[in-house]
Amino acid sequence: MLSSPVIELEQISKAFGATQALDRLDLHVEAGQTSVLIGPSGCGKSTLLRVLVGLIEPDGGTATFEGTTITPQSVHALRRRMGYVIQEGGLFPHLTATENVVLMARQLGWPEPKWRSRLGELAELTRLPTDALGRYPIELSGGQRQRVSLMRALMLDPHVLLMDEPLGALDPMIRFELQVELRAIFRRLGKTVLLVTHDLDEAGFFGDFIVLLRNGRIEQRGTLEELVNEPRNEFVRAFVNAQRSTVAPLREDPRP
């Protein structure tokens, strides 16, 4: 299959006062790829995702989503094709898990049998226990909340998933479990994924490509092996070493 760029960022800049959060950044993401954004805190990872979702308007440059330039006018329609998941899930606390997941579908006028069957599919996919569906976010565990959040993002069957540290707030056991499940889901659905993490190990586990950022610029884009074995500069080497020294050797890739 010939892959075409789903996301194209060209010369994107964004400053907050004196802070240059994104600095003339270029990035292309092909359909079906999982790309992981990584880099020191404050390097602009979240800002990049927020530009794509249209929460932030860049100061300069163009961002294109499936061939359409993202503008405040166009982005509303594009959001139907994006699923956005953030660290704490961003679930609406006044709605039950089900209500959170199906909110947008119902606003779009889906008939009940349709959204119910989609809800069932997603609960199965994310392995969310059925009795959790009727609970409010405050009654769910952190892992369940992230599952619901993912269900909500997937409800309208978006082409792209934008995930900002989706597992960041979870304890290691749950986190490991969810990593494995998430990657299986990505593979199964064949979605284009742009995921942010702090953890190089997690980045290597998920990512076809890893994008290492610093001060709003891309330092290197490549596979984990490329970053480890062919660091483009001193910063990449130092970043990789700092992360590698704290974690166990690269986890076995369970791909056949």
Partner: peptide, 25 residues
């Protein structure tokens, strides 16, 4: 803010956000 931004990213219009998310909260 994460709640408001989730609502925006979900594709809710400003009036839907007000009615379904913000006023209930």
């Amino acid at each position: 803010r994460p709640i408001v931004e989730s609502a925006i990213a979900l594709g809710l219009s400003p009036s839907q956000r007000l009615r379904l998310i913000e006023l209930p909260l």
